[in-house]
């Protein structure tokens, strides 16, 4: 059976530093997989490599059985992989609506001619882009719609910026969504709500999700599978319950137990 995403022997080095090495794993359609690991473990690098921002040193990445290694980020997105950023990177001076509209770029096709002659097809597509954007934004309740649609993104609170970033990723109509610490900086109530929404992203929108997260409650609540990275090396994979009692994982997070040290 073929997998949605397959990572084969992936290695990434930054001038001597092994940010990732010997990474082998796969993601199946409809899964929610969490990638965890201490700071600097290489989690974000892993996402950057998939989305084409970082070139792997060796190994391969297959998406629906096709290699996506060496593709430009926009080509990767067009194939159906969307992402968010750990340090929220919206288009701050574009409105909330425009942020979501612009992300539909690779799913739309009207060009200069359509815009200049205001063809029927152009108007229809613009209308669809707007409708889509509104529909996606209303997934997050009333926070990002209404009068908010025309406000620049920089007025949003931190939590709302994270939500908008997810909305923007949704707008590229992906098969696979990479969320880099989606609940970082949110309060418990917001966290619980977003955890629920991540579940809905799969059940209602049909996205497969890979998520980097430090908040273990979120990891426990939503993920089918957990992958643990430490110093660029995968040290454990499995369900949350298996992984959380794995001695290597405990060691990576808490340090070597005292009795072993002597």
């Amino acid at each position: 059976m073929s997998h949605l995403l397959e990572i084969k022997d992936l290695q990434v080095t930054f001038g001597g530093l092994n940010a990732l090495s010997g990474l082998n794993f796969h993601i199946d359609e409809g899964e929610i997989v969490s990638v965890i690991g201490p700071n600097g473990a290489g989690k974000t690098t892993f996402f950057n490599t998939i989305s084409g921002l970082v070139e792997p040193t060796s190994g391969d990445i297959l998406f629906e059985d096709e290699s996506i290694r060496g593709l430009d980020p926009n080509q990767v997105t067009a194939l159906g992989i969307a992402r968010t950023f750990q340090n929220v990177r919206l288009f701050p001076n574009m409105t909330i609506m425009e942020n979501v509209m612009v992300a539909q770029h690779c799913r739309t096709s009207q060009n200069v001619i359509g815009a200049l002659f205001q063809t029927k097809a152009f108007k229809k597509e613009e209308e669809e882009i707007r409708e889509n954007a509104k529909e996606i934004l209303s997934f997050f309740g009333s926070r990002l719609v209404g009068y908010r649609l025309d406000q620049p993104a920089f007025v949003l609170s931190y939590a709302n910026r994270r939500r908008l970033e997810i909305a923007r990723a949704m707008a590229t109509r992906p098969r696979l969504m990479l969320l880099d610490e989606p609940v970082a900086g949110m309060n418990p109530k917001e966290t619980a709500e977003l955890t629920e929404l991540i579940g809905q992203l799969r059940s209602e929108w049909g996205f497969t999700i890979v998520m980097i997260e430090h908040d273990m409650r979120v990891v426990r609540d939503v993920s089918d599978r957990v992958v643990v990275l430490d110093h660029g090396v995968p040290i454990a994979q499995g369900s949350y319950d298996e992984v959380s009692i794995n001695p290597d994982v405990v060691e990576a997070y808490l340090g070597r137990p005292v009795e072993n040290k002597s």
Binding site: L53, P73, N74, E98, V102, E126
Partner: peptide, 26 residues
């Protein structure tokens, strides 16, 4: 007309953050 079109929006996104614009499929 171009300003308020798909192309115009992609220009604005590039002006804001080129790398992210590319990662968003532009």
């Amino acid at each position: 007309r171009l300003q308020a079109s798909r192309l115009g929006r992609s220009w604005m996104a590039i002006r804001e953050d080129e790398q992210v614009a590319e990662a968003m499929g532009i």
